[in-house]
Design a protein around this nucleic acid. Structure first.
Lengths: 305, 305
DNA sequence: GATGATCATACTTTAAAGGTATTAATCGGT
DNA sequence: ACCGATTAATACCTTTAAAGTATGATCATC
């Protein structure tokens, strides 16, 4: 049996007349007669009673007509859904994010994407840099978000946002009186550094900046993540360099100050990563959304709302 | 798109390999490749990613696989239901019955049919003889039940049961003392006759029997149906000839007596009628059930349970 | 870099759907 | 009661499309 048989049978049943149905189907009458006979033979069921002025459905034929219309509808819906999936409008997007950096830019981006593609289910997975790479390769996620990524041949990196560095400290810190802090002034202050994850990491970056400014930092403590770092800074362990978006973390007793005298490359990136050979339309759609959000997500803008 | 495309796609998706799927489908690999390409082209959607060691589903492909399996199941179910309908096992049987004669034999028959064909919905329509003929011609019913039918060219009649005649009377009637009543004795007793419907009817039959026995009956009253006739007999209007199954009507004060001295053709028939050109499998099935019940439904047996 | 596996392409064969002409059956109208 | 119109069925031919065979292109693995 074939969808053609169903289409033909529906026409015949609706016209109650094989000749008219043939006209409607843009074929001639004899092949239609044969197709219907074939259908009946294959089912082993008499679907039509032939009369001198047309045909009429048997009881089985009437039931089959219902079934045929239902099948037609199911097929149409399947086609339509598949096409939407093929256009990236329907499906699922697994996103790898890392704990504390998922502030500001990423929610904005995901919200914009969800507005444009409401039928794509976004599934978030919290994982660190190495886990994201691994998950991308195993197709467990389609995109990841991270900072300071070393280039890899099979993973494409795309900058989403750049953020300035700020200094987090306790409100009792001697630096708290100033409106802004010149970077070289940090030479005399113990630093809380994070994260202690896979290299290259933010600690490496801070160390490099200090060396470029001509001093060896006083390392008070190295911790695993931003929350811990800011918490220790608030507790007076030292000052802590953080990306601007971290200011969303309003821990009690902590204040943030801008830094002066930093080079341009002192900004810290937030990047999106995905498999270089991934051609899925949902990824295309997501990258398109990033492109549209480009200006909104760049440095500074991240704090405007 | 074609059911073949779906079958092929399911095989390819399950094997993750076009060559193996082709083997499973008993075709060679190139036409399978082409059919899949055709399917993708028609949908406008990439369903598979080709790799050097086979194929893997895209997200749209995975969705389409689900849809395809669903369509396959729907088609299978439609086929199966249609076939059952074609065998008379699924569907509906509209039956015309007439009020008071629907005693004993017809319920037994319908119960037996329902046991054999539980998925056929039996719909009962109460209508008299003329209405049944009309309804048969208009296909509003498939079978009717009635008595004393004149033969018609487009309607086939089939005897279902024969019943003896009994005499209904008040327990105060002078005939009530006897164990049985010789038919000619009715010459001296007023008769209640029924029904006053389309000819030929039961009244005609009783008149004929009386004439054959050599007397003109004393007609006390003609009424429209058996219940009324038996009720009048119970009230002393006279005696009333009834088919044996009417004894199911146990009205207060009424007693039934057998008759002697009646010819064989004095039995009254219960017949099933249907359109002579009706070939519906459900009708076939119903007639088959009547055939099986033949012995059970014949005269006498109607009162044994 | 050779080998084996896999999908894609080119070309031929085969099967099946579609077309034309005609027949058979039935109904309505004269 | 016959004739024409209408309808489905059949016979035969044409065209389309699916399946087969042979071969090429690509990539992973040893």
């Amino acid at each position: 049996m074939d969808l053609r048989h169903l289409r033909y049978f529906i026409a015949v049943a609706e016209e109650q007349n094989i000749g008219r149905a043939a006209t409607r189907l843009h074929i001639s009458q004899p092949p239609l007669t044969r197709q219907i006979q074939q259908l009946e033979e294959e089912l082993g069921v008499r679907l039509l009673n032939r009369t001198p002025r047309g045909v009429e459905l048997t009881q089985a034929g009437a039931l089959f007509l219902d079934e045929a219309r239902n099948i037609r509808a199911v097929v149409e819906q399947a086609t339509e859904r598949t096409q939407r999936a093929g256009q990236g409008k329907l499906g699922r997007l697994d996103v790898g994010i890392f704990g504390t950096a998922i502030l500001d830019a990423i929610p904005k981006l995901l919200l914009a994407f969800r507005r444009s593609y409401p039928e794509v289910k976004i599934v978030l997975h919290t994982m660190n840099k190495g886990e994201q790479i691994e998950a991308l390769r195993q197709r467990r996620i389609t995109v990841g978000f991270n900072r300071m990524l070393a280039p890899l041949p099979d993973i494409t990196t795309r900058l989403v946002a750049n953020e300035r560095l700020l200094l987090a400290m306790s409100h009792t810190s001697p630096l708290a009186a100033q409106e802004s802090v010149p970077f070289p002034a940090l030479r005399d202050h113990p630093l809380v550094l994070f994260p202690t994850g896979a290299r290259p990491n933010f600690i490496d970056k801070v160390m490099t900046l200090c060396h470029e400014a001509g001093f060896e930092p006083l390392v008070s403590q190295e911790v695993s993540d931003a929350i811990t770092g800011v918490a220790l800074a608030a507790g007076g362990f030292g000052v802590c360099l953080v990306p601007e978006s971290t200011t969303s973390l309003a821990l009690p007793g902590v204040i943030y100050k801008p830094l002066t005298g930093l080079p341009d490359h002192a900004q810290v990136d937030l990047s999106c990563i995905y498999r270089s050979d991934d051609q899925s339309p949902i990824l295309e759609a997501f990258l398109g959304t990033i492109e549209q959000m480009r200006s909104t997500l760049q440095s500074g803008a991240a704090l405007t709302e």
